[in-house]
Nucleic acid binder design. Structure first.
Lengths: 187, 187
DNA sequence: CCTACCGATCGGTAGG
DNA sequence: CCTACCGATCGGTAGG
């Protein structure tokens, strides 16, 4: 996961992995069966990390606007920490494979879909609890919030400037306050 | 540029390029001198395309909120068309190199910086013309607008769904109307 | 611009 | 899990 976040899932070579693990190349190869299976296994492992670092902390917060906010905060912390040396694993690898059809892209697309649906569901909860007013669709609002978080990830890496995470946080807070029935809840 | 937008600047190989151009590998090599120089030349060429497709059309619009809007529209059209088969050239290659120090990353960071400063300058113009109210810094507002456009680029490619560009357009329009002194100007 | 070549590395296989 | 090997491809060079 660390290698792939920096060098990409194609840059993750079986031989390179073997020498880092002090195993033979064919020994590592036998564990996966093909490079594509290694890539898919890496994606599965990264989903587990993402669940533990981002989704689970947000689920610990009570449903409502606070959980939406907790989810965004957890994502920003995950991007800024950084959990992976190349920033968000899914950002790096999705940009690599988004125009290359195959099982790797399909796995990344499915992971992204699950994430987006979870984000939307936290917004739906907040709406049903009466904490969000206005007619903006949950899909639209989540797209906007997640867009700000992702933008901070690249900008921070490309310019070596972590302050952009604060910029994303500001944008997300402003956006949520604009739709909140009680804006002071996010102050 | 087309190859790099899909396979990345590392996936752009001298031998592959030679066979596509029906030249010898060393013939292509001699034109650039190194793979890194090929990558840098590709970035320079992509900057020219980006200028012609995105920046120049926006400059044709009169300064003010209309130019900010025209710039966002031009970017969305550039991403959706698509000008490159792998979506925005700079999105794909910046995600590839953002965690890999060197001249390639430096060139991409500089291109991004120029782009961000130009975007901010269109917002400054609109503010000085009295078309933007409120105290939001230009850097913050441009970060938010550009974040929405970039998010649409990946989502469209990853899920083969171009409707996300409309989602980005909606988000950008809403954001600009929220700060416009005359919101009807963007209706 | 070319042919011919270099050492290194790639994913993958044979056989144990 | 290993050694030893395969053909293909990589960036780059020698020499013209």
């Amino acid at each position: 996961m660390d290698i792939a976040s920096v060098e990409g899932l194609d840059g993750l070579s079986i031989g390179g992995l073997a020498s880092e693990l002090k195993l033979s190349k064919s020994g590592v190869f036998a564990h996966f069966g093909s490079k594509e299976e290694l890539q898919l296994a890496t994606i599965r492992a990264a989903r587990d990390v993402f669940m533990a670092r981002v989704v689970s902390p947000a689920r610990a917060a009570p449903p409502g606007l606070g959980r939406v906010w907790a989810l965004c905060e957890a994502w920003l912390a995950y991007g800024a920490e950084p959990v992976f040396p190349g920033g968000c694993f899914f950002f790096a690898t999705s940009a690599e494979f988004d125009a290359r059809p195959g099982r790797v892209r399909d796995a990344l697309a499915e992971a992204n879909k699950d994430w987006v649906l979870f984000g939307q569901s936290t917004i739906d909860e907040a709406r049903h609890l009466g904490e969000i007013s206005g007619e903006i669709p949950s899909a639209q609002l989540w797209f906007e919030l997640y867009a700000l978080a992702r933008a901070a990830n690249t900008d921070a890496l490309l310019h070596g400037d972590k302050t952009v995470f604060e910029r994303a946080r500001t944008g997300i807070r402003n956006r949520l306050q604009a739709v909140a029935t009680d804006p002071s809840a996010l102050a």
